[in-house]
Amino acid sequence: MTTKTEAIGNKVRIGAWWNRAALRFSRDHKENKGWGIFSGKEGFLFAVILLILWQIIAVVSHQKLRFLFPSLPVVAGALWVSLPELLRGTWSSFLILVPGYLAAVAVGVAAGIVTATTGWLGRAFMPFARVVAPVPPTIYIPYAIALIATFRGASIVVVFIGAFWPVFLNTAAGAAAVPAQYRDDARILGLSRFDTLRKVVLPASLPQSFSGMAVGLALSFIMLTVAELFGANAGLGRFVQYYADYADYPRMVAGIVYTGLITFLSMAILERIRKRALFWVR
């Protein structure tokens, strides 16, 4: 049981976090006036208004739309009840997402660096990359499922394709634009090609690589959930699809909220890693 002070403590913490985020935004945008007592808390205010609006719509439409807009307590209840199932789904989804995404990062970074620094390889591969990269990766899903025997294998490949291109293209752009100063240094030090790539080009293009990884991670989640809508028997996308089929909208909305939260958390973890790895960027 939560005591009153604990609950308040949590509220204060979340409020403080939200305010910090809002403050960062207003600092970046040099705009601190015009909202009176809500100055600096607009973000928090917006979220509260959004929740209140949702609740009003839920209550008003309750009779007519049969829980198409479940009210907040109902969603919270559904979330609580479904939590074990959602956690199992998360595990199942991550068994697809993590291998696919990590493979895309490893191959994308390595291939990007080598392609951008090898003349003939760049000339051979980049035109192909420019044509293929913009193709929406979701389009490959049916074919991947047809080609690969297991659903999990097909989904991993599909996540890989989705995350690979942004990682590859950003890394290649970064590796092609390594400041002349660093390249000169590597030459003066007489570094071998391998050492130059590993110790100079890789770190120097890491800022761009991380931009690619962030886009790639967002795309991975899209690929994952869409693939699960097609033919999974577990997972986050499957959860939402399943309860939508049975018109259990409270659970469906809970699934959407939960998936959003997981995505946000994953992005936050990546951001943390980025900050750590790029400590030297000023």
Partner: peptide
């Protein structure tokens, strides 16, 4: 280039992702 001819540039040319010692170790 050859290591019999070392060069020092105008812009600070140490690699920013390495400590001083790691730079020298290179």
């Amino acid at each position: 280039p050859g290591i019999d001819r070392g060069m020092v540039f105008q812009d600070y040319s140490l690699f920013p992702w390495m400590t001083l010692r790691e730079n020298i170790l290179l």
